[in-house]
Amino acid sequence: MTRQDKVSDDMLMALADGELNEIEADRLRRLIAADPALAARYRAFATTRSLLQDAYPLEPVPERLMAAVMADGVPKVAPLRRQMAPAAGWGMAMAAALVLAVGGFFVGRGTGPDQVNVAAATADLLTGAEIRLADGSTARVLGSYDTDIGLCRLIGQDDLRHVVCRDSRAGGWVTALSVDAGSADNFMPASDLSVAVIDRLLDDVGAGPALDPVAERGALMR
């Protein structure tokens, strides 16, 4: 007991990680061999190391990562299509946010009215609910946010993600951003890249965390 107290966790861990010089390591190994309690503490460090090495083996690399190295560092994304109807009050914020989407992720599918329809079609739905649209696609509400410019919602429409915001003056909804989240098997922007763009926009308009169902219902009824 007294002997064990002299050895810190840091020392035991350093031994397990090969950070001690031979003299220190030998001394500590002798202490461990003579003291089962100390040995048990040491095992926690040594075992986690070997378990992690087994749990994360090296694996074959997908072709697309090889291709990314051989490319010139320019993300392969759909061309930017700036389509927005800035309402007074939040046009500037949106414009600023859109500039951040360098290289852009706007997609050519559908036109403005289509996307407004997505927003309108889901206007009564709470997060998680989905609806089949006239064009055969499925729209699903992924989140609602209180922002500096009013209520905004993230809506998935098959592979697309729309951020729509309520136009408090004119009424109705305006599409702030449409992103192709891409499917896994093509060269489109990584899904997380589009997530980053969406989040950047939400950050810029001061969005809080996703609303819970009660708050969301209240916000939709306002």
Binding site: R64, L65, A68, A71, G73, A190, S191, D192, L193
Partner: peptide, 17 residues
């Protein structure tokens, strides 16, 4: 794994730039 691939790809693009 799929998210890891996305993360590596974005990082490679950053690195090359």
């Amino acid at each position: 794994a799929d998210q890891a691939d996305d993360l590596v790809q974005i990082s490679i693009e950053k690195a090359l730039r």
